[in-house]
Protein backbone atom coordinates (compact mmCIF):
# COMPACT_ATOMS: atom_id res chain seq x y z
CA UNK A 1 0.00 0.00 0.00
CA UNK A 2 1.38 3.37 -0.96
CA UNK A 3 1.04 5.78 1.93
CA UNK A 4 2.41 8.78 0.06
CA UNK A 5 -1.03 10.19 -0.95
CA UNK A 6 -2.16 9.91 2.68
CA UNK A 7 0.98 11.72 3.86
CA UNK A 8 0.45 14.37 1.19
CA UNK A 9 -3.12 14.87 2.44
CA UNK A 10 -1.86 15.08 6.06
CA UNK A 11 0.73 17.66 5.04
CA UNK A 12 -2.01 19.70 3.34
CA UNK A 13 -4.24 19.83 6.42
CA UNK A 14 -4.85 23.29 7.83
CA UNK A 15 -3.01 22.43 11.07
CA UNK A 16 0.10 21.39 9.14
CA UNK A 17 -0.06 24.52 6.99
CA UNK A 18 -0.60 26.81 9.99
CA UNK A 19 2.50 25.43 11.75
CA UNK A 20 4.57 25.72 8.56
CA UNK A 21 3.49 29.32 8.06
CA UNK A 22 4.30 30.33 11.61
CA UNK A 23 7.79 31.27 12.74
CA UNK A 24 7.31 30.34 16.38
CA UNK A 25 4.61 27.63 16.44
CA UNK A 26 6.92 24.70 15.63
CA UNK A 27 9.60 25.65 18.21
CA UNK A 28 6.94 26.18 20.89
CA UNK A 29 5.29 22.80 20.23
CA UNK A 30 8.76 21.24 20.11
CA UNK A 31 9.60 22.76 23.51
CA UNK A 32 6.49 21.25 25.09
CA UNK A 33 7.42 17.93 23.44
CA UNK A 34 10.81 18.16 25.20
CA UNK A 35 9.31 19.09 28.58
CA UNK A 36 7.04 16.05 28.32
CA UNK A 37 10.12 14.00 27.41
CA UNK A 38 11.67 14.85 30.77
CA UNK A 39 8.44 13.87 32.50
CA UNK A 40 7.93 10.56 30.70
CA UNK A 41 11.66 9.80 30.95
CA UNK A 42 11.55 10.30 34.71
CA UNK A 43 8.40 8.20 35.10
CA UNK A 44 9.94 5.34 33.11
CA UNK A 45 13.38 5.58 34.74
CA UNK A 46 12.13 5.61 38.34
CA UNK A 47 10.31 2.29 37.82
CA UNK A 48 13.00 0.69 35.65
CA UNK A 49 15.74 1.69 38.10
CA UNK A 50 13.66 0.17 40.89
CA UNK A 51 13.21 -3.08 38.93
CA UNK A 52 17.00 -3.12 38.42
CA UNK A 53 17.51 -2.71 42.16
CA UNK A 54 18.51 0.96 42.17
CA UNK A 55 16.90 4.22 43.20
CA UNK A 56 13.83 3.92 45.43
CA UNK A 57 14.64 0.34 46.38
CA UNK A 58 12.98 0.32 49.78
CA UNK A 59 9.62 0.88 48.10
CA UNK A 60 7.52 -2.01 46.77
CA UNK A 61 7.66 -2.04 42.97
CA UNK A 62 3.89 -2.36 42.59
CA UNK A 63 3.10 0.71 44.72
CA UNK A 64 5.81 2.79 43.05
CA UNK A 65 4.65 1.90 39.53
CA UNK A 66 1.04 2.64 40.44
CA UNK A 67 2.02 5.95 42.02
CA UNK A 68 3.94 7.13 39.00
CA UNK A 69 1.49 5.74 36.43
CA UNK A 70 -0.58 8.93 35.94
CA UNK A 71 2.62 10.85 35.12
CA UNK A 72 3.67 8.21 32.62
CA UNK A 73 0.27 8.37 30.91
CA UNK A 74 0.18 12.18 31.12
CA UNK A 75 3.68 12.43 29.65
CA UNK A 76 2.89 10.03 26.84
CA UNK A 77 -0.38 11.80 25.97
CA UNK A 78 1.42 15.17 25.88
CA UNK A 79 4.14 13.65 23.68
CA UNK A 80 1.52 12.41 21.19
CA UNK A 81 -0.52 15.64 21.30
CA UNK A 82 2.59 17.68 20.48
CA UNK A 83 4.17 15.09 18.18
CA UNK A 84 1.18 14.80 15.84
CA UNK A 85 1.05 18.53 14.90
CA UNK A 86 4.82 18.57 14.32
CA UNK A 87 4.40 15.56 12.07
CA UNK A 88 1.53 17.22 10.17
CA UNK A 89 3.74 20.21 9.43
CA UNK A 90 6.33 18.02 7.70
CA UNK A 91 4.55 14.80 6.78
CA UNK A 92 6.26 14.43 3.39
CA UNK A 93 9.70 14.93 4.93
CA UNK A 94 8.81 12.25 7.49
CA UNK A 95 7.65 9.91 4.74
CA UNK A 96 11.15 9.94 3.27
CA UNK A 97 12.93 9.90 6.65
CA UNK A 98 14.13 6.44 7.80
CA UNK A 99 14.45 7.59 11.47
CA UNK A 100 10.75 8.55 11.41
CA UNK A 101 9.70 5.01 10.48
CA UNK A 102 12.09 3.52 13.05
CA UNK A 103 10.71 5.83 15.70
CA UNK A 104 7.07 4.97 14.98
CA UNK A 105 7.83 1.24 14.98
CA UNK A 106 9.75 1.43 18.26
CA UNK A 107 7.05 3.65 19.73
CA UNK A 108 4.32 1.09 19.01
CA UNK A 109 6.40 -1.76 20.44
CA UNK A 110 7.56 0.25 23.48
CA UNK A 111 4.01 1.40 24.29
CA UNK A 112 2.51 -2.08 23.96
CA UNK A 113 5.38 -3.48 26.01
CA UNK A 114 5.07 -0.85 28.76
CA UNK A 115 1.31 -1.16 29.20
CA UNK A 116 1.13 -4.88 28.43
CA UNK A 117 4.20 -6.59 29.84
CA UNK A 118 5.99 -4.18 32.15
CA UNK A 119 2.83 -3.02 33.88
CA UNK A 120 1.98 -6.63 34.78
CA UNK A 121 5.51 -7.43 35.95
CA UNK A 122 5.57 -4.31 38.13
CA UNK A 123 2.10 -5.02 39.53
CA UNK A 124 3.04 -8.62 40.38
CA UNK A 125 5.97 -7.29 42.43
CA UNK A 126 9.42 -8.84 42.58
CA UNK A 127 8.40 -11.39 45.20
CA UNK A 128 6.30 -13.27 42.66
CA UNK A 129 8.20 -12.52 39.47
CA UNK A 130 11.78 -12.92 40.66
CA UNK A 131 14.46 -10.23 40.52
CA UNK A 132 16.04 -11.57 37.33
CA UNK A 133 12.81 -11.23 35.37
CA UNK A 134 12.28 -7.82 36.87
CA UNK A 135 15.74 -6.76 35.70
CA UNK A 136 15.23 -8.13 32.19
CA UNK A 137 11.87 -6.37 32.01
CA UNK A 138 13.53 -3.08 32.97
CA UNK A 139 16.45 -3.50 30.54
CA UNK A 140 14.06 -4.20 27.65
CA UNK A 141 12.01 -1.14 28.61
CA UNK A 142 15.09 1.11 28.78
CA UNK A 143 16.34 -0.26 25.45
CA UNK A 144 13.02 0.20 23.66
CA UNK A 145 12.43 3.75 24.92
CA UNK A 146 16.03 4.68 24.17
CA UNK A 147 15.47 3.61 20.56
CA UNK A 148 12.28 5.71 20.40
CA UNK A 149 14.12 8.81 21.68
CA UNK A 150 17.26 8.24 19.65
CA UNK A 151 15.51 7.72 16.33
CA UNK A 152 13.16 10.60 17.17
CA UNK A 153 16.04 13.04 17.46
CA UNK A 154 17.49 11.77 14.18
CA UNK A 155 14.36 12.70 12.21
CA UNK A 156 15.89 16.18 12.24
CA UNK A 157 19.13 14.90 10.69
CA UNK A 158 17.86 12.48 8.02
Amino acid sequence: MDLLPLFQWLEDTSIGAAIRDSLWLFPVIESVHLLALALIGGAILVVDLRLLGFGLKSQPVAALAENIHPWLVGGLVTMVLTGVPMFLSEAIKCYYSPPFWYKMSFLVVATLYTFGVRKRVAAADTAKVGPIWGRLTALASLGLWFCVGFSGRWIAFY
Binding site: A38, L39, A43
Partner: peptide, 18 residues
Protein backbone atom coordinates in the same frame (compact mmCIF):
# COMPACT_ATOMS: atom_id res chain seq x y z
CA UNK B 1 26.48 14.72 21.11
CA UNK B 2 23.23 16.58 20.52
CA UNK B 3 21.20 13.36 20.88
CA UNK B 4 23.06 12.56 24.11
CA UNK B 5 22.29 16.04 25.40
CA UNK B 6 18.57 15.72 24.62
CA UNK B 7 18.09 12.17 25.87
CA UNK B 8 19.94 12.86 29.12
CA UNK B 9 17.03 15.20 29.86
CA UNK B 10 15.20 12.04 30.89
CA UNK B 11 17.85 11.18 33.45
CA UNK B 12 18.62 14.63 34.84
CA UNK B 13 15.30 16.43 34.54
CA UNK B 14 13.32 13.24 34.98
CA UNK B 15 14.84 12.79 38.44
CA UNK B 16 14.61 16.50 39.24
CA UNK B 17 10.95 16.63 38.20
CA UNK B 18 10.25 13.57 40.35
Amino acid sequence: VETTHVLTLCLFLGMTAT
